[in-house]
């Protein structure tokens, strides 16, 4: 008797392939193919009005080096992403620790901190644009307590602080909830054992909590960095990249080059540079995870 071709193992494998097919096609068609096309565009000069594509080789890539605006754009991107990630993760963790206990009103607080997540980015940013005006609500509130507020969006440094803070307030709820989940996964016995050993709060947090939630820390770090590098609506609505180039992050610069100045070749080149950054950062984190992520399964 011949064994049937469709063994359980083979049938399983076929099901596996079929199950992942839609997702795989999505990634190939809507991500990998476009990345390939972006590489091709970056080697061309494209006159939109004439519909002419001219092969220019490495010219767009060489233009990166000659772009007088690029250093400030990269600087703003680093400050913005770094600021958002650090603030978002530390605030998210702090909120989670504060809300990871039972007391009356804890649900109300969780709801309040999470609520901006469900407000659309554009509506959120529009409102902050009002509040941050020189004659807006924030300065009015500050003047009540005797502080003479500054003109937030008209100064490069405060404008950057403003876009970082509004972005963090809007999105920290997600990280807060992810951390809450992680904290609830830490077995209570570990805390009790540590307390019996006479460890203080700080020591417990550092020695027990942090290592145990480090996998979540890695996940949130990746999600937050990717999100920060793609923050477009905030910038477009709140500052349009100004004043000067102070809040022109790479994503916004790509949009300007490709869709406002109609320089698709150079826009694609910039976008690919952005992709390289994201890849390198993720790779770096992935490599470093062995050092600081406690258990890896």
């Amino acid at each position: 008797m011949k064994a049937p071709f469709w063994t359980t193992r083979r049938r399983d494998a076929l099901t596996g392939y079929l199950f992942i097919t839609p997702q795989l096609i999505g990634v190939v068609v809507f991500v990998l193919v476009p990345v390939g096309l972006a590489v091709w565009y970056s080697l061309n000069d494209w006159n939109i009005f004439r519909g002419e594509l001219t092969f220019v080789g490495g010219e767009n890539w060489a233009a990166l080096l000659d772009d007088p605006q690029l250093p400030s754009v990269l600087g703003a991107t680093a400050v913005f992403s770094g600021g958002v990630v650090v603030l978002n993760i530390s605030l998210g963790l702090a909120l989670a620790v504060m809300l990871n206990r039972r007391f009356r009103g804890v649900t109300v607080f969780r709801t309040m901190f999470f609520s901006p997540v469900v407000v659309s980015v554009v509506a959120w940013t529009l409102v902050w644009g009002f509040l941050l005006q020189d004659n807006g609500g924030i300065n009015a509130a500050l003047s009540v307590v005797g502080i003479d507020g500054t003109n937030w969006l008209q100064n490069g440094n405060t404008a950057m602080v403003a876009v970082i803070v509004t972005q963090v307030i809007r999105s920290v709820g997600v990280n807060m909830v992810l951390f809450l989940a992680a904290l609830q996964g830490v077995p209570g016995e570990l805390y009790e054992a540590a307390r019996i050993d006479g460890a203080g709060d700080a020591a417990i947090f550092r020695r027990i909590t942090l290592p145990l939630i480090s996998p979540t820390l890695l996940l949130t770090a990746i999600i937050t960095i990717v999100g920060a590098l793609q923050a477009f609506a905030q910038i477009a609505v709140l500052t349009q990249g100004g004043p000067g180039l102070s809040t022109t992050v790479l994503v916004y610069y790509v949009f300007q080059q490709a869709f406002e100045f109609n320089d698709i070749g150079y826009g694609s080149t910039l976008a690919l540079m952005l992709l390289t950054f994201v890849m390198l950062l993720t790779l770096l984190q992935w490599q470093l995870r062995r050092k600081w992520v406690f258990h890896e399964n």
Binding site: Q69, Q154, G242, P243, G244, L245, Q256, E260
Partner: peptide
């Protein structure tokens, strides 16, 4: 855009 970026310093 380039003009605005430079002119922002005026204000």
């Amino acid at each position: 855009q380039k003009g605005k970026t430079a002119l922002d310093a005026m204000w």
